[in-house]
Each structure stands twice: as C-alpha cells, then as structure tokens.
Design a protein around this nucleic acid. Structure first.
Lengths: 376, 376
DNA sequence: CGGAAATTGTTTAGTGGTTGAATTATTTGA
DNA sequence: TCAAATAATTCAACCACTAAACAATTTCCG
C-alpha cells in the first residue's frame, strides 16, 4: 500500500505541467495532506523528488513548495544496435537526455560478439560520463531489430543473428557487470520512446474498466518502424503490448496481396515486399497503398485511433500520407464515425534508444519503493 | 486493501477445483490464516461464500472446512438479441446456468422498440424465476450483433438498427427499472463466455509485467464468430480487449483480396465476402483460405496463441481446419517457433448470452467489497 | 488403547500506514 | 495591524494485516 501510494505521488508529480505543491498532490490523489507529506519526505530523502521554487502565487496564504523529479537521481541507459550504427544514451528521471553517443558503422560484416563488444564500450563510456554528473544508472535496455524471447535474440535477419545472448555479452564488460540489462525489439522500444515524448497525461485514478478503454487518445497508438524489415509497437492506454510470447508487432509479414511477391519468410505478398526499405524507393504509391491495407486491418481489429510512422517512413511522411489515408478511409469500417489520425514519428532515429532508456526509468517511476529500498 | 484482499480470496476459491480450506486459501494468497479467516467471515456473512463439506482427508490434523461460491447469491442476467432469436439466461456466482429462455422469431421485420419490448418480457420472466430460487439478480448485459459505443447501439446491419438506446428501452420494463444494464458486441461477449468455460486458472499473484505476458495460454485467445457478418473478440490474459473506443474486433472487414469482391461496407475484398455465412456455403475451401489469411494477420500483429472458431464456423470446424491451418503455417512468421492452436467454440449459440451474464457476475467477483456494501 | 504429532481455525498483542483534527507557518488584503 | 487564506506538520485514533500462542480435532504409531 505504501509502495502503491509512493508510485501514485511520483506519478502525479511527473505528469504535472508545473511543479505541484504537497497540497496539490493531495488533492489530485485523494490522499490527505498528512499522508502526502510523509510520502514526499520519503521520496525526497530517497533522492527521487526535489523541492523547487513554487509556481507563481495566486491569492493569499502560505506559499507552496514546488515538487519536481530530480535530475541527479536514477537514470536509464538506452542502447541500440542496428544495421549501420551503434548507439547509447542516458536519460534521467525527468526524461531529459543527458548523454548521447552514436557510432556509425556497418554491423553486418561483424559477428554478434564483435558488435556487442563495441556497443559495450560505448555503454561503459556513457555510464561513466553520466555518473560524473551525479546520476546513478539504474539499469540498461537494448533495442535490437529482431525477435526477442526469454531474454534471447532469437532471430535478427538484418544483422544475421540467431539465438544471441546479448545480455550476457554486455554483462561481460567490466563496467556493466552490476547493471540489470534487458533486451527488446526495436519497434516496441521506439513506440515507448514516442510515448514518452508525445503521450498525454493519463488519469491518476484507476481507469474505469467498464466499456471502452479510457485515457487520452495520445496514449494509444501503433508505431510502425520502416526499416529493411517492418516492425510495429502497439501502445494501449500508455502500456506497451508485447504479446503473449513477446512476438507481437510483426506487421511486416501481414499479408497484403495473397498471391503477390515471394517473401524471404516463405510466404507470399507480405507487406515487407511492398513497403520495406527497398520497395519503398521503387514504387512509393504502391508502398503507401500496401501500408494502408495492412494498417486498416490493424485498426479494424484493434480500434487504434492513432498511427505513428517512424524509421524510414518519417522523412517521406508527407508523400506517403495521402496514399495511406485513402486506403484507411475506404477499408476501416468505423472511419466514418471517427477518422484515424496518421502522423510522423517525433523522435527520428533516436526513438528506440530513447525508449530503451525509458523502460529503465519507467521501472523506477512505477515502483519507487524498490528504489528506496536499494538506498535505505 | 481490504477490497483487494476480499477479491483475492474470492478469486482463489472460485478457481479451485475442489473446495479449499481457509488454510489452503491462506497458502495460495500468501496472507496469514488469521487474515483469511477474517476475510472469509465477511464473505460468508455477505452471502458470497458458503461452508461446505471438505475434500476427503489426507493425513493427520483437524479436519478442514471447505469453501465454495454460493449458488443462492448474486446472479447475472444475460440477454441476447439476434437476427432470428431472442434469448435470456440467468447465471449464478458459480457460473452455473440457472434459467434459460429462448424465443425463436425473425427480428428483422420488427423495429427496435418491438424487439426490445419482447426481449424485456423475456428478461422479466427470467428475473422473476431466478428470484423465486433465492437468487439476487445483480445486473443485466445485452449482446447485440453490432457496433456499440457509449452505451448506444450505433449500427447493427443485420438487424437494420441505427443509434438505438437499447438500455433505455429495457429499463422501461417495470421489472427491470432498478437493474444496472449494459450493452456490448455479440462477439466480445461470446469470447467472455468461452473464457468462462475453457479458461485456465490465472496466477493469483500479480502477473510479472516484465517481458512477455504470463498466464496460462487458455487465457489469451481470439474468438471468431461467423454469422452473416464476422466479428471477433480478443481476450488477453483473461481480459477482454474492447479497443479504445469499443470498436475492436471487426475482423469481417479486414482486407483479404485488395481488388476482390465489393463489400457492403464500400471496400473491396473484405473477409466477410469470402467467409461470411453466404459465401461459406458456396466455396468452403476459399472461405477457409480467406480466414487463414486474415487470422495470420492477427497472429503476426498480436502473437495470439489460440484461435477459437464460433458461430457458423463451429459445426463445420473439421472441414475448415486444414485450409485455415495451411495458411497460418505459411503466413505466420513465428509458426515455426510455436504453432497456433485452432479449435472450435465449446459453447455453441449460447456463448454470447452466457458471456453477457458472465460480465455481471465477473463484476461482483472482481469487487466483492462493493457487493458487501450493498447489503451491509 | 493412549499419547504424540499434525493440521485447522481462532484469539490476542503488535505494527505500519492512513485519516482527521488541531497546530504552526507564512502570505495577501482590508 | 489584524483577519482571512493557504501550506505544511504534528498527534491521537483507527483499520487491516502479521506473528505467535492457543484451542480443537483428527491420524499415526507403539
């Protein structure tokens, strides 16, 4: 219960536009001011919140003390390995990017061990730089362009990886041995990155589970990442949906033309063959149409109100838009009731790395009690 | 906290194969026996649990007292309106069907008001019969073959309904005025009905949200209802996913052949044109293939491990199976890693009505504290 | 047959965390 | 300068859970 309320208070402070007072937090949570005071004391002592100057006064009364997330507390280390670059970044509790290192190099000739060693070096550098700034790196997360299950990269076609234990490889770097490290699919993490930047403020109280989902529409979207393959990350009410076995989001292999081009997966007519990076340069209108067809399936099935186009799609968004929307208008059953919003990703190529770092700080935000225990 | 633990205890008792003792519940929940005793006392006093004969003894010690859900407590009234019948049933807390009334009649010539009046009569009869048995009808839910939003039936093509306030119409019946009534899509509710009958026992502790979803695979499935239209209900980890606006599951309008037959929705090549009830009689192999294509999209996107075929598909399941599975094998990217299970619905035409009743008792089971307050 | 061991369920004292009311602190406005 | 207003803290009371002792009832085993 304490744990839950600590998370609740942190959540309110994190999602306020201006530093709220203890009294404001009490009002927002429904707890008493006494309780909030006690909780805030713990959070300040544990280095998660800081007292800051209050927002400008309005009316009489004792002036409030503003509360804000620290910028010198726990931080997340976000890592990404992709076909033509390695990247690492450190994001603090407020969501600010404090360090960012990118190393451009084709990873395809390298074997997994080589690539992961290089990434490990990058990660170690980032960690040291961050800790010199007073940050405490609470964990790391790695984004890979492939299928992940049980902590293993089962298959990453564009890197030519198969059953790679990336976590173990990174842990082998001396500066990282003590860090909790996770791996996840690139599109999933990019979706989370996008959520952090553009997501609305969810309702502090439990969402009413009767009938349709609640929450602001910015918190439910499908992120589509167009690379050589095409992946997707689905965010529903601010939560990433990973699938029962963690293999959701394979939109690249949704069938668009049942008797169409042969795909390297063995099937025919997969979206990837029409809207993957190669096909994209050949025939953009057809790519847009294929995307529209596959996306309308998603919307018909899941009632997702927003679609975000990332990766290679983001820079050419304006030329794809019309073609995609035409298919959505025609093929989404409910498009007459409420149109589907289509927009370009806000974060560009950093999305996955940022999302990875975000998973770490998200864990701290969602369970501050665990963090406080670590430093009690 | 009390509310949460009451629900937890009820949950354990409900999902036990044989009546558990207080001590067994304590072990399963992690609470102490003293706490469980107190919680159970409240639940027994509130008429949700009863003490029954214990399971046969094993070993030494004081004999246990068995606990079970009451069959004379709160009950759910499940209603369904469909093209050729009206139906009502009453399900008690244990999930047993206590009353069942079906009235066969073509509803298409009737206008909404007429149909709902007839259904209201049926519902009133069912309620009175149930209360004569000592049941307390806690609420009602209505299944309709159409799109529901904000408590309104926005459009039900096969009934020729548009923007019908079905809840208000039912409330107009004197015997039902005091009941909380909800409406939902037929496929969604059928999925819940199926879950109640075949669903596995979820982990009593909070599912670990790190990585992939947990829970038994029986708790995540897509229910596909083949009627004149085709609807789907998605259940993930034992929870129905309704979509952000409540419009999920429109698998009938997923594109299968982009340049195929014109659909009444205005688009081309919708699944409904190939696997709807009419097309089904014409060309079954093609229907199976079309279903397989659309379902492989679902699995690629959502990583759903189980697909349940209901409605008109259930009786011809064996002749559809091979055709569907062939497409799934070919088109689901991860079919090599773990196959998709395909099975026929267990509940037949009663699924939606049963699922509707289930939503009511589910609400009581998930928040027993609210029920206890009502009778304090 | 009788006592030890085992097991269930209750009782009782103690603890953590929340509430509500009173109290202190600090400002604005008359 | 003082009343009103607002923020934050202190303190007693309370609720729900825990832990440990205890009572009740059985089986096991010599």
């Amino acid at each position: 219960m304490r744990a839950h309320n600590l998370a609740l208070v942190l959540h309110i402070v994190a999602n306020s536009t201006s530093p709220p007072s203890r009294a404001a937090v009490a009002a927002a949570t429904g707890l008493t001011r006494a309780t909030v005071s006690a909780l805030v004391d713990d959070l300040v002592a544990g280095g998660l919140l800081v007292e800051v100057d209050p927002p400008p006064r309005i009316g009489a009364g004792r002036p409030a003390v503003g509360l804000a997330l620290t910028s010198t507390g726990p931080a997340g280390l976000g890592l990404e390995i992709n076909v033509d670059y390695l990247a690492a970044c450190v994001v603090d509790l407020t969501g600010a990017v404090r360090h960012r290192h990118v190393e451009h190099a084709d990873q395809r000739p390298a074997d997994p061990a080589q690539a992961l060693t290089a990434l490990g070096r990058l990660a170690a550098t980032a960690r040291l730089a961050a800790e010199a700034d007073g940050l405490v790196v609470a964990g790391a997360a790695l984004a890979v362009p492939g299928l992940v299950a049980g902590g293993l990269v089962r298959v990453a076609p564009n890197l030519a990886w198969q059953d790679v234990d990336a976590v173990a490889a990174l842990r082998a770097v001396p500066e990282l041995t003590d860090l909790p490290i996770t791996v996840d699919n690139e599109a999933n993490l990019a979706a989370l990155g996008e959520l952090r930047v553009t997501g609305g403020i969810p309702d502090p109280r439990e969402p009413g589970r009767d009938g349709a989902g609640t929450g602001s529409p910015g918190n439910s979207f499908l992120y589509v990442s167009g690379e050589i393959g095409i992946g997707a990350g689905l965010v529903i009410d601010g939560e990433l949906y990973r699938g029962v076995r963690g293999w959701s989001g394979e939109i690249g292999h949704v069938t668009v033309y049942p008797d169409g081009r042969a795909c390297r997966c063995g099937a025919r007519g997969c979206l990837e063959q029409y809207a993957g990076q190669e096909a994209l340069t050949e025939d953009q209108p057809r790519a847009a149409a294929a995307l529209g067809i596959a996306l309308s399936a998603v919307v018909n099935l899941l009632d997702v109100p927003v679609i975000v186009l990332g990766g290679a799609y983001a820079p050419i968004f304006s030329s794809l838009r019309e073609g995609i929307e035409a298919e959505l208008r025609a093929r989404v059953l409910t498009s007459g009731l409420a149109p589907v919003t289509l927009r370009a990703a806000a974060l560009g190529p950093d999305a996955a790395m940022r999302g990875a770092a975000d998973t770490v700080i998200r864990a701290v935000r969602e369970d501050p009690a665990a963090w406080l225990r670590r430093f009690a």
